[in-house]
């Protein structure tokens, strides 16, 4: 009963629950030791408005239980931190989206390059092209293979010199991908000569034909810089 839960206790007014049987005299003045007004006996209704309020001084534990500014600060900081983190995450995510988009674009381009090169590779490695290139180099097929058996040095088969014309010259098997023929890059065409062959073609007509029928030297490709460690032999 002593602790009124820290509530500010104002002086009770005269109104009481209607069913109260308590007489007014149940509040003797002594119950309110108002020392500030010694001369006043029973409170007068007209003067009550101006009467200063009295308060119960909170106990220490009550003071301690009050919210402190630190708590508010923590909460506000927390909220701010969350908002900022959220913002950063969003920025990071959209950055990522743009990066993904650009990398996907890059991958698409690389896929296209890959497709171009593999198409060219498949075309150049077609039998028609290989045979034409080999024939242009003066190669002939030998249909009589001879084997040397390593275990006893025996020669199996009958050695016969290869004769030209084992396969009829011109390709009879069409390949519309090869027209215009992609058989051999024309070393005599200006602009496609590589520095190494220019001298040969220029100085010697005989070697010039050999150069012209050289196997399809790869189109000059931009140098690809070496990445990673240099290859080195493994020794034990």
């Amino acid at each position: 009963m002593t602790n009124l839960a820290g509530a500010t206790m104002t002086r009770p007014r005269t109104f009481l629950p209607s069913g109260s049987a308590l007489p007014d005299t149940a509040f003797p003045d002594t119950a309110f030791p108002d020392t500030a007004r010694p001369g006043i006996g029973r409170p007068q209704p007209g003067r009550r408005e101006t009467a200063p309020r009295i308060e119960i001084v909170p106990t220490r534990s009550q003071r301690r239980a009050r919210p402190k500014i630190a708590y508010a600060a923590v909460v506000v900081t927390g909220v701010l931190a969350i908002v900022v983190t959220q913002l950063m995450l969003s920025i990071g995510l959209s950055d990522g989206a743009y990066e993904i988009s650009s990398l996907q674009q890059q991958q698409k381009e690389l896929d296209r390059s890959h497709q171009v090169l593999s198409e060219q590779f498949d075309k150049l490695s077609s039998p028609q092209n290989l045979a034409a290139s080999a024939a242009a180099l003066g190669m002939v097929t030998n249909s009589a293979p001879v084997y040397l058996r390593l275990s006893d040095g025996a020669v199996l088969g009958s050695p016969v010199a290869a004769a030209p014309g084992a396969v009829a010259g011109a390709s009879l098997i069409p390949n519309s991908l090869l027209t215009p023929p992609a058989t051999t890059p024309d070393a005599t065409t200006p602009g496609t000569t590589t520095p190494g062959t220019t001298a040969a073609a220029g100085t010697d007509a005989a070697t010039g034909t050999a150069v012209a029928s050289a196997p399809p030297a790869a189109e000059p490709q931009p140098d690809v810089p070496w990445q990673g460690a240099l290859p080195s032999p493994t020794t034990r």
Binding site: E119, D122, K123, S126, P127, Q128, P174, N175, S176, L177
Partner: peptide, 8 residues
């Protein structure tokens, strides 16, 4: 569709 070896 493409057929790198043509009529082969």
């Amino acid at each position: 569709r493409t057929y790198p070896n043509g009529a082969v």
